[in-house]
Nucleic acid binder design. Sequence first.
DNA 1: GACATTGTGACCATTATTGACCTTTGTTAT
DNA 2: ATAACAAAGGTCAATAATGGTCACAATGTC
Lengths: 157, 157
Amino acid sequence: MSNLANRIEEYLKMVLQQADEGYIVLQRGFLANFFSCAPSQINYVLTTRFSAERGYLVESRRGGGGYLRIVRLGLDPEGKFQRLMAELIGEELSPERANNLLTRLEEEEIFTKRETILIRSIFTSKVLAETSSAPDILRARMMKEILANMCREDVNI
Amino acid sequence: MSNLANRIEEYLKMVLQQADEGYIVLQRGFLANFFSCAPSQINYVLTTRFSAERGYLVESRRGGGGYLRIVRLGLDPEGKFQRLMAELIGEELSPERANNLLTRLEEEEIFTKRETILIRSIFTSKVLAETSSAPDILRARMMKEILANMCREDVNI
DNA sequence: GACATTGTGACCATTATTGACCTTTGTTAT
DNA sequence: ATAACAAAGGTCAATAATGGTCACAATGTC
């Protein structure tokens, strides 16, 4: 399980941890060199591991003095949570996107580890695919339903 | 009675014995090579010997850095889970029965309050009825999937 | 011989890695 | 100014590295 992509991911998250502004700025070339890999490998890691679903934003700039900026997006407490989630989920939710989302919700401590395992066990099993003709839609609706019922004052973690 | 499947089974259980996290992670290719057999033979062993009914859970990932993770399920004291799972095989689970079951499991502290709310929010919502042609069967299978996963030794309540 | 279990191989699906080629931005020589 | 060049980052398709499925062959069991 310790492939390059995972190691780069870990490294970036480690650096991000220690950054107190909530973001880091670095160069693709430096990273590629550091990990002795193709520069495009960095893009692969960014798109697969630092997506919006997982709670990250990546900005970049080309040319001389170019850079990558990786921003960790917190879930704001201003009550926009439900809307943000609804937007992120949409009408359909593939197993992969669901996974990303759950990874983030666990990291943000919206759900416990057990709860994410519980949800994943339903979402990723063959059960849905075998029983439903539109598993992605079902998944999206269930996820929204869960969030609506769990993120209330009377249901504390 | 020492055929290949049995030897692979024994080997895996032996390794699993010594793992104190309650699970092991390894590669299918490695195993197939180790036992000089077709890779698909490993899948055969996993499905016939490491099913949820027998107290195991298998997760996997494809692609570079792919792996198999075999999780040992702890047996709860009175084998409640096992009996429940057996009951739910090929069964249907109406909203009412699901409700009663969840109330009981919460009282017995198998699930937390939040967890039952979570499960109920999926089971009792209109989502299932609207999207599936056989909601009771779907409910039963989901419940079974959940129960199996909640026995994982690496996830404490 | 009939039936169940085990074993294999061909083909498929998913994830990771690389390299060739492209775009944008900055610097320098004229 | 501007043309050339240097110094970034971006895209995409090919390939490699995994694991999954399924039909069928081989072997056991009664």
